[in-house]
């Protein structure tokens, strides 16, 4: 990539990212949320984050793999169970990552 291209990519990515994040804050005093929208928005984080990670978990090599030799699935399942059980983010992350790396090591043996 040329230097000009690099600058365009950074500038363009900055503009769209900041634009999305700031546009409603910029006009905040004029934005009033209808009740149905406020209700619907509560489901956004769960829906978006799930959509990002599920393909990574069940198809780590671009192919569906829901067998026990998939460390992504094992690590995610462990994190999920701990998260439901204890609801402590740090514990969820640590247990998930540990199970992931241990099973990745075991699968690789």
């Amino acid at each position: 990539m040329t230097t000009v291209d690099s600058v365009i990519v950074i500038a363009g990515m900055f503009l769209v990212t900041f634009g999305i994040r700031f546009v409603l804050f910029a006009r905040a005093h004029k934005v009033s949320m209808p009740e149905w929208l406020e209700k619907a928005l509560r489901y956004v984080p769960v829906a978006v984050l799930t959509a990002i990670i599920t393909p990574m978990i069940v198809m780590p090599n671009q192919q569906l793999n829901v067998a026990l030799n998939n460390p992504w699935l094992l690590g995610a399942a462990a994190a999920f169970l701990v998260g439901i059980w204890r609801q402590q983010q740090l514990l969820t992350i640590v247990v998930g990552v540990l199970v992931f790396f241990i099973s990745k090591y075991l699968v690789g043996l």
């Binding site: 489901y43 984080p45 769960v46 829906a47 978006v48 984050l49 799930t50 959509a51 990002i52 990670i53 599920t54 990574m56 978990i57 460390p71 992504w72 690590g75 995610a76 994190a79 999920f80 998260g83 439901i84 609801q87 983010q89 740090l90 969820t92 992350i93 998930g96 990552v97 992931f100 790396f101 990745k104």
Partner: peptide
């Protein structure tokens, strides 16, 4: 496989929401 850390982090964000049926259904359908 360092990107698994992002997966675990997002699971840590999601699970506290799953206390009622609509959130569980949102997760499953997504």
């Amino acid at each position: 496989g360092l990107e698994f850390a992002m997966v675990a982090t997002f699971i840590g964000i999601i699970t506290p929401y799953l206390k009622s049926k609509p959130f569980v259904l949102a997760l499953l359908s997504s």
